[in-house]
Each structure stands twice: as structure tokens, then as C-alpha cells.
Nucleic acid binder design. Structure first.
Length: 203
DNA sequence: CCCTGATTCGC
DNA sequence: GCGAATCAGG
């Protein structure tokens, strides 16, 4: 895997957005392990992990246990864990039960509601979102998120990866993104889709 | 079972 | 440096 600057930028971006490692991996056509591994090497902020690895050492490395003569004072900073709503795991507080106000052009709520209903377990087998990369599904999905700062320099542009990262033809969408998001409206639709249906719809 | 992220360790 | 294998919690 060639971790070009672009790819790394993408990784950081997606990581900062709170996407799951597997999700990021899917987007970049790599495995989640690669994502996690790279993220660690990059020193990206760890995510709230369900597990705590200690005590049990499966294989080797059980010898270099600890250095008793070295105990740096734990001056840990207050862990400010932002509860960034993971798009693929925790849909934003969209109006799930609110009947979409038919009055105005609000496909947003409708779509969002629909997406919210698509709960895992129940619909994961259903191809509710066969969204691949360059898909064009007229669906608007917005997410309430305190913008994680997409790009700063120059005009923001959609950074949805087109093609496989690293390959010659690879490029980013470049369209004007939704405010607060790294993707344009078109790609935000498919970017924030849940389910792993995507994986077989890719490439 | 599915998901998740973290760590280890051979390459 | 990389990431599959593995671990481990939900």
C-alpha cells in the first residue's frame, strides 16, 4: 500500500469524522487493519475502543513485560472525548418519527428518516443502500455535526475519492461540498450511508 | 453471528 | 513501514 499524501489526508479526514475503521477502509479500498495500523503510526487520536488489551499475551512478547525502573509521571490531559456521531453507526438526531413537512422541499428529512429506519440487524441483509462510489442516488442526507473542519486552505472541495487511491487516474470529486462536510451533496449522499452493503457494491 | 477498534509481529 | 492475524468487548 502506497500511502501517498492524498491518501493519508483522506484517512485523517475520515478518521476525524468519526467513521469506523472498517468504513474508512472500505472507502479507500483497503482493509480496516490497514486503516487502524496506519492511523496508529500517524498518531491519530484513538477512538473509544470497546476492548482493553492487557494481561493476556497470545504469542510472544510475553517476556519484555515491563521496565520497573522507569515510571514517568502520568500527566494525562483530561480526555475530551467528543461524541462525534458516527455516520455509519449513530445517525444524527434526525427526525425519525416526525412526519416530513410536505410543505417545502424537504427531501432531507424524508431521506434522513428513511435512513434512520434502516437499522442494522433488521435490514442489514436488505440491500437498502447499494451505493457504490460513483453512484447517483437522488437522495439527500444531512447530518448535524459540528463541522470537523474539512479543508481550510483555498475553497473547500469535495474530497470523495474517485477511482482507487494511488492509481494514476485517482482524483477527488472537487465539487463544492456541503457546508461542514468534506463531500459535495452528491457524494455526501453515498458517503454517509450505513450498512456494509457497500462492500460488495464497490470497485 | 455480527460489529467494533487495538495490538502484535512477520514481512 | 506495512497490515494480516489476532485479540477482545459490545
Amino acid at each position: 500500500m502506497e500511502w501517498s499524501e492524498e491518501i493519508i489526508a483522506q484517512l485523517k479526514d475520515l478518521w476525524a469524522e468519526g467513521l469506523s475503521t472498517a468504513e474508512i477502509g472500505r472507502r479507500l479500498s483497503i482493509t480496516k487493519n490497514a486503516v487502524v495500523g496506519k492511523a496508529h503510526r500517524l498518531g491519530l487520536p484513538p477512538r473509544p475502543s470497546p476492548i482493553r488489551r492487557n494481561g493476556s499475551k497470545p504469542k510472544a512478547a510475553a517476556d519484555k513485560a515491563e521496565q520497573p525502573t522507569l515510571t514517568p509521571p502520568a500527566s494525562e490531559a483530561p480526555a475530551s472525548r467528543i461524541t462525534a456521531p458516527a455516520p455509519s453507526a449513530a445517525p444524527a438526531p434526525v427526525a425519525a418519527t416526525a412526519p416530513a413537512p410536505v410543505a417545502g422541499p424537504s427531501p432531507v428529512l424524508a431521506a434522513a428518516t428513511e435512513a434512520s429506519m434502516v437499522d442494522d440487524k433488521t435490514a442489514r441483509k436488505e440491500k437498502a443502500a447499494p451505493a457504490a462510489r460513483p453512484s447517483t442516488k437522488p437522495k439527500t442526507l444531512l447530518r448535524s455535526i459540528s463541522d470537523p473542519e474539512p479543508q481550510k486552505r483555498r475553497g473547500p472541495s469535495c474530497c470523495w475519492p474517485i477511482g482507487d487511491p494511488g492509481t494514476p487516474g485517482f482524483h477527488f470529486c472537487g465539487a463544492t461540498p456541503i457546508p461542514g462536510k468534506p463531500y459535495c451533496e452528491e457524494h455526501a449522499q453515498i458517503a454517509y450511508v450505513r450498512l456494509r452493503d457497500r462492500r460488495d457494491s464497490m470497485a
